[in-house]
């Protein structure tokens, strides 16, 4: 069954439409926190002309669902949303949206950051950048592992 709250798509999305839909008809909501990831034109000292995002269909959705379930267990939040684009993207394009609704901002801020940190290390996406020297697969960052690890002791 397709899940409206986890979407992997080639097409773009509209931030305000998504946030409006997420909190629609839910008067309990007092806070909506969102993170929007976009394509930079520089990475590791090279110019980036574009990138191609690959993922593991089936596992991606399962991994994201597990992350959202964990966030809902840890914090008192209402709705969560992840949209991640795949395929070919250009600098300034939107890549990923994570959004969380809750009664108060503290829970929503924390849950949104948690979801993003886990997505970076546990969801099977891979970026390949087009640079002036040719295409190259992006290496995982040690700082991403560290960002995820800090949630394990709190």
């Amino acid at each position: 069954m397709p899940n409206a709250y986890i979407r992997i798509q080639e097409g773009d999305f509209d931030l305000s439409t998504e946030l409006a839909a997420l909190r629609k008809s839910d008067p309990r909501v007092g806070a909506v926190v969102s993170f929007l990831g976009t394509v930079r034109d520089m990475n590791d000292g090279s110019q980036v002309k574009g990138m191609t995002l690959e993922h593991y269909p089936g596992m991606t959705e399962k991994a994201l669902q597990e992350i959202l379930d964990q966030a809902k267990t840890r914090w008192d939040i209402f709705q969560t949303l992840v949209i991640h684009r795949v395929g070919h993207l250009l600098p300034e394009d939107q890549i990923v949206l994570v959004a969380v609704t809750s009664a108060h901002r503290g829970e929503a801020f924390a849950a949104c950051e948690f979801i993003m940190d886990y997505l970076k290390t546990a969801a099977p996406f891979w970026k390949k950048e087009d640079t002036p020297d040719g295409a190259r697969w992006v290496d995982a960052r040690v700082t991403d592992e560290a960002a995820m690890a800090r949630w394990e002791n709190t």
């Binding site: 996406f125 891979w126 970026k127």
Partner: peptide, 10 residues
């Protein structure tokens, strides 16, 4: 069974 490099999404 899948093998892949460390992930780089987001």
């Amino acid at each position: 069974v899948a093998f892949f490099p460390p992930v780089t999404g987001g």
